[in-house]
């Protein structure tokens, strides 16, 4: 029998331990969340969040719609804010790398990734919630955009940087203006990289609770008004997770399932497919 060095054995064991824990977490969400989702079915995606059973008796309808709609809306608005900023900054960082502004922007972007997300939440609380005297979905969106901007900027910069100089020069040598080379001709080449950045940023933002707790607030009813408070899946998991209500604990699992298996995982998988398709 071949002897395996104990060091290699340890590497295998630790790796399987970490991956085992990951599968445990995913499995727990699946086992506890999916049955709830299946039990309530469509209702879960359309009905409002039920009041506590304790006070009002069993609710006629049980849903997570306010949290689902809230997460989608908050993240979508955050994308509208962060994409133009991140994209333009990313192109700047790649194409005008020698300017002081580009260097500073790259530096700040990699710094922003390291800023604790709760800090963004508290900052936006002071900056927007206090002056406007109320929680709002859009305050949450601004907080999330602070988290998304650096991802979009750095991925965009990377996508443009990966295009060989020679190809950019090929366009310029045809007398095509630089802006058209960057935004039109290279579009197909950089799109996979930029889209990957956007999807990763979306996946990150969708799961964040800390920036939303004190900005977006809470609402039991579906609201599409960005200037009103809004629930979100991540905040719901936290809020209901500490509850003693059986139903709310179940809803936390269902929200975990929807967040991980129906929003974040698809985003991640699509981002991987986009990159794969790009390689020719």
């Amino acid at each position: 029998m071949r002897k395996v060095h104990p060091g290699i054995l340890a590497i295998y064991l630790l790796s399987f331990l970490a991956l085992g824990l990951l599968l445990w977490v995913l499995g727990a969400i699946l086992v506890n969340g999916l049955p709830v989702v299946l039990h309530y079915g469509v209702q879960l995606f359309t009905a409002n969040i039920p009041p506590p059973v304790f006070f009002f008796g069993p609710p006629p309808e049980v849903g997570l719609a306010p949290a689902i709609v809230g997460t989608l809306m908050i993240v979508f608005i955050a994308l509208l804010i962060s994409f133009p900023i991140g994209f333009l900054a990313g192109v700047l960082i790649s194409e005008f790398y020698y300017t002081r502004l580009a260097k500073a922007a790259e530096h700040v972007a990699s710094l922003l990734v390291e800023v604790p997300t709760i800090a963004a939440g508290i900052a936006i609380y002071w900056l927007i919630v206090v002056p406007t005297q109320g929680f709002s979905a859009i305050a949450g969106s601004v907080a999330l955009s602070l988290i998304m901007i650096p991802y979009i900027a750095l991925y965009t910069a990377e996508a443009y940087r990966k295009v060989p100089k020679l190809i950019k020069e090929g366009g310029l040598a045809l007398g095509i203006p630089y802006s058209k080379v960057l935004f039109k001709i290279l579009r197909g080449l950089v799109a996979p990289g930029v889209i990957t950045g956007v999807l990763i940023a979306l996946a990150k933002a969708a799961g964040e609770a800390a920036p939303l707790l004190f900005t977006a607030g809470w609402s039991n009813k579906v609201s599409l008004d960005p200037f009103q408070p809004s629930a979100s899946l991540s905040v719901l998991i936290y809020k209901f997770g500490f509850s003693s209500q059986e139903l709310w604990l179940k809803l936390s699992w269902a929200a975990s399932f929807i967040l991980v298996f129906m929003i974040i995982l698809p985003l991640i998988i699509i981002s991987k497919l986009v990159v794969r398709k790009h390689e020719f």
Binding site: G170, G171, A173, L189
Partner: peptide, 10 residues
């Protein structure tokens, strides 16, 4: 150019 540089995605 020295090396062929068509727009590979077009």
């Amino acid at each position: 150019f020295q090396r062929p540089n068509p727009f590979p995605h077009m």
